[in-house]
Amino acid sequence: MIQRRALLGAISLGAAAPAAWAQTEAFPNRPVSMVVAFPPGGQADVVARPVAAALERLWRVPVPVQNRAGAAGEIGNGAVARAAPDGYTILMALSSVVVLPEAAKLFGRAPAYTLDQLQPLALVSADPVLLAVPAASPWRTLEEFIADAKRRPGEISYSSSGNYSALHLPMAMLAAAAEIDMLHVPFQGGAPALTALVAGQVQALASGPGPISPHVREGRLRVLASWGARPIAGFEDVPTLLSKGFSGVEYYIWCGAYAPAGIQAPIAQRLRQGLAAAAADPDVVRALNAAGSAIDHRDGDAFARFAAADAERLARVVQRIGRID
């Protein structure tokens, strides 16, 4: 009897294996949703749309971008963390994805998701953020901006994509390094934060190059500084904060793709292969270059190591900011 049960079990497993393989071979055979945890027009959205279009051409299935904004990215990130790990829901995340669970600890609440609920697939881009101000503002240099902020503590306002978000942390780093006090005005995403700056509702914004580049070209915004290690393409004349003598202020806003943890390895591999192909797609490269961004593709484990190191570094920034009530 025991031998018969073992034989039946082996037959069952043997039958299941080809079925699972066939399912993997057919993947994807229906739409793959790409979630962006912010409104349209922000950095993650700027990256997600050309990548999704490239995946549609490759897989011949729709790859709709779904903007699920709210709580500085927690809502969309958490939705993907809880999604079925079947490969049909993926996240195009901003760097704040590794920060928000740490921020939740400040409030003594359970985070909307934890990092072990998300499996890194591929880094797509990593750009230093830029300090942008209205072109009509009185500041033409970083030094003028900082001097004015010191004269008027708490009066110069800046927008962000939410508390502890990818656009909040760099300004908090600058404020600590320059010993200035500014008024933080959080929004539900990078696009409304940028709209507020262009409309003159706030006076400064730290942003990836993509969203602000058209406004800089059209003369509505001026860029005073970069959080990068070196000048970036299209903004070669913009000084870095490091070159101005500030330490501990290097910061990059990166976009990377994640799947829900528990996804089958062959399906994760298919997703990673698709993302690698998209990163090399000439249309994607052109779209990101036109937006002032650049491809920085890192696959699987390399992306996981990159994100883990950034999470550790940025956790210290979150702890320094402290609880925001």
Rank of each mutant, 00 (worst) to 15 (best):
F246I: 13
E218Q: 14
Q66R: 15
G322D: 06
M92I: 08
I180G: 07
K150V: 04
L221N: 04
A48H: 12
I267F: 03
A103N: 05
I75Q: 01
Q273C: 08
A175Y: 01
G108D: 01
F235V: 10
A304T: 10
E179G: 08
A178P: 10
W21F: 14
R5I: 13
V285R: 09
V284W: 12
A110L: 09
A290M: 11
T141D: 02
I263Q: 09
P134R: 06
A261D: 11
Q66H: 11
A307Q: 07
F38W: 13
R222P: 05
S96H: 15
Q188G: 09
A103V: 01
S125A: 15
V249W: 02
D299T: 15
A26R: 15
V65P: 03
P211N: 05
V284Q: 09
D148G: 06
A79I: 08
A44I: 12
A112V: 07
Y252P: 00
A69S: 11
R222Y: 12
L94H: 00
Y258I: 13
T240C: 04
P85Y: 10
A93I: 10
P192C: 08
I324G: 00
S12P: 01
A15T: 13
E155Y: 12
Y113R: 02
G41F: 05
G189F: 09
V317Y: 00
I90L: 14
